[in-house]
Structure formats: structure tokens, C-alpha cells
């Protein structure tokens, strides 16, 4: 039997899953939409991963990361539950040992990780608002009637990208409407948008951090070649985009789980297991904590959200 490790990255928009062996080779992978239901998304994802695996594979470790890591970690009984910043750093390091800067733009958040000798020395994450993230890009693509898959290609055809305000999504949007209404060609607007994402990212997340090569770009937006090209122009550095750039968080967490693997084998069978979250508002004081009770097979296994022990009473 061959030992393998499962890593799942449950993001706001998409859920990514990989199975790797002890040498970090990819045995199976999938990328699906979360669609607001992480539990169902993970069930679908695991079914698809199982189909890709041969019968002599045993899962010896499970790691979860991403914004729903805690919930899914409980559901799968994961041996590692870690934040996505560490997961991305570990995953990228395994494939690009001398990487110095990781740019990551996802659906709702964006981050920058700086490494030196394979050690994370600094990182930054966007605060408060989702400006310059994939969600903004896809909503603007819809407004312009450009399929998000074509977006990058269209941007590459532009010779004179328009200037779009880069500071804030709301300003960028009104700027964009204005540019469209005065008749700029669509490819120039699309290219301008890619540039505004890059500038916004460097201003809001980078904030003057020293970006040194090799630079690796990942997250869903890294699949957009228009944005990649703008990054190259602005940073004057070659940008590496791995073919598995969208899976890097999942790969990282799988690696972490392999390092802390115990001897038990995970059956990956969830058909007969029910899993539900019941939310309620605690009435004991005016904090009104939103208490989440997590049930596995109708049995309460965990409670979150209480600021004090009174919230634990069911």
C-alpha cells in the first residue's frame, strides 16, 4: 500500500483539493466552486478525488486550510488545520526552494509573503475591503460582458490600456463606467482593469515592501494572463506562474499534514455521516454572541462563537 496525504483549501469562492504521496507528487486534484456550502463542496470534491485514485492508496493524513478550515477540519477529523498564509508558503517552497516573494490574489483576499532562505520573514494581507481581488475582477467582467476565462487574453490585445483609479474598488468601478461610456475599446478597458488590480495590490497589500525575485504568483487570479503581464511590467521582474498555482494552498497543507501524520488511516467515507451547523443567538447579555453548534451524526461535537462560558449551554 502506498501512503498518501489529502490537502483541502476551502476558500470563499472555490474549494481546492489534492492528494499527494510522500515525495509530494500530485496523485489527484480538483478545483470546484464552493457556492456558499463548504460541507457539500467538500463531499463532492472528495468523491471526485477518490475516482482519480488507484486502489492501493491509503490516506494517512488530512490537512485543511482556507476560511472554512475549522469547520471542515472537524468534519474530516483532520490532523492539521492551518491558516492559508503558512500553507501557501510551505506549498510554494516545496516546488521553488529559492522563492523570495509570493504574490497571492484569491477571491476575497489577497496576500503577499516574503521569504528569505526558505523562511517566511514578512507577510501582509489585505485589510477591511476586498479591493483588488478576484471577486471584483469577476463582477466587472460580468458588467463588460466578457467571460472571465477570456478576460486575460482580451487584455493582452490592448496597446493603450486606459488609466483606472486604483485606490478603491468603488472609485475604480465608477471610473470604469465613465471610460466605457466615452467609448474606449473594450480591450483597453480590460487591460486598464488588470493594471488597476496590480497597482491596488501593490499599494494596499505591498505598502512599500521590497519585492525581490524570484517572484511566484498564485491564487485564482494568477490564471489571468492579463494581470500576470501587468505585474511583469510594473515590477520589471519575471513572474513565475505554476501550472498548479491555484492548488498551492491545498498542496501546502497536504505537505504539512504529511509531516505530522499519525498512523491511522482515513477511510474517506462520508456518505452515512450527517454534518450540520446550527446557529443561535445567545440571550444572556447584550453581546448577543452568535453561537454555532456543530453536530456530527446529531451529536454535538463543538461550539464556537461564545465570548464567555455562558454561551456553551445549549
Amino acid at each position: 500500500m502506498k501512503k498518501a496525504y489529502l490537502g483541502i483549501d476551502i476558500g470563499s469562492i472555490s474549494t481546492k483539493g489534492v492528494v499527494i504521496d510522500s515525495d509530494y507528487h500530485l496523485l489527484a486534484s480538483d478545483y470546484i466552486w464552493t457556492e456558499g456550502d463548504p460541507v457539500q463542496a467538500v463531499r463532492t470534491l472528495i468523491d471526485s478525488l477518490k475516482e482519480q485514485l488507484s486502489d492501493d492508496i491509503e490516506i494517512h493524513g488530512i490537512g485543511t486550510t482556507g476560511s472554512a478550515r475549522k469547520l471542515i477540519g472537524l468534519m474530516l477529523d483532520a490532523n492539521v488545520v492551518k491558516n492559508e498564509i503558512t500553507a501557501h508558503a510551505v506549498g510554494t517552497k516545496a516546488f521553488y526552494p529559492d522563492v523570495r516573494t509570493i504574490l497571492e490574489i484569491g477571491g476575497q483576499d489577497s496576500k503577499m509573503i516574503l521569504l528569505n532562505h526558505g523562511v517566511v520573514v514578512d507577510y501582509a494581507m489585505n485589510t477591511l475591503c476586498a479591493a483588488g481581488t478576484g471577486a471584483f475582477l469577476s463582477s466587472q467582467a460580468k458588467r463588460l460582458g466578457v467571460p472571465i476565462e477570456e478576460f486575460g487574453k482580451l487584455a493582452l490585445t490592448s496597446k493603450h490600456p486606459v488609466k483606472i483609479a486604483a485606490r478603491c474598488t468603488v472609485f475604480a468601478e465608477s471610473d470604469l463606467i465613465h471610460k466605457a461610456q466615452v467609448g474606449y475599446p473594450k480591450e483597453d478597458i480590460v487591460a486598464g482593469l488588470c493594471r488597476s488590480i496590480v497597482l491596488n495590490y501593490l499599494n494596499n497589500v505591498g505598502k512599500g515592501k521590497k519585492i525581490m525575485g524570484p517572484v511566484v504568483f498564485q491564487g485564482g487570479v494568477s490564471k489571468n494572463i492579463g494581470v500576470v503581464k501587468q505585474f511583469e511590467e510594473v515590477l520589471k521582474e519575471p513572474i513565475i506562474v505554476d501550472p498548479n498555482s491555484h492548488l498551492m494552498g491545498a498542496i501546502g497543507i497536504a505537505i504539512l499534514s504529511s509531516k505530522q501524520a499519525r498512523d491511522n488511516i482515513y477511510p474517506l467515507e462520508f456518505k452515512n455521516i450527517t454534518f450540520e451547523t446550527k446557529g443561535r443567538e445567545c440571550e444572556h447579555c447584550s453581546n448577543h454572541c452568535e453561537i454555532l453548534n456543530i453536530y456530527k451524526n446529531q451529536k454535538l461535537i463543538d461550539t464556537w462563537g461564545n465570548k464567555c462560558p455562558r454561551g456553551l449551554q445549549v
Binding site: K82, N83, E84, I85, T86, V119, V120, V121, M125
Partner: peptide, 13 residues
Amino acid sequence: TRIEAFYDMLEMR
């Protein structure tokens, strides 16, 4: 998430 990542970074360093 940020605190966790901060702690991981301290440990790696």
C-alpha cells in the same frame, strides 16, 4: 488567521 500566520512565521524564523 493573521495571528496564526504571525506565530507560524515566528516559529519558522
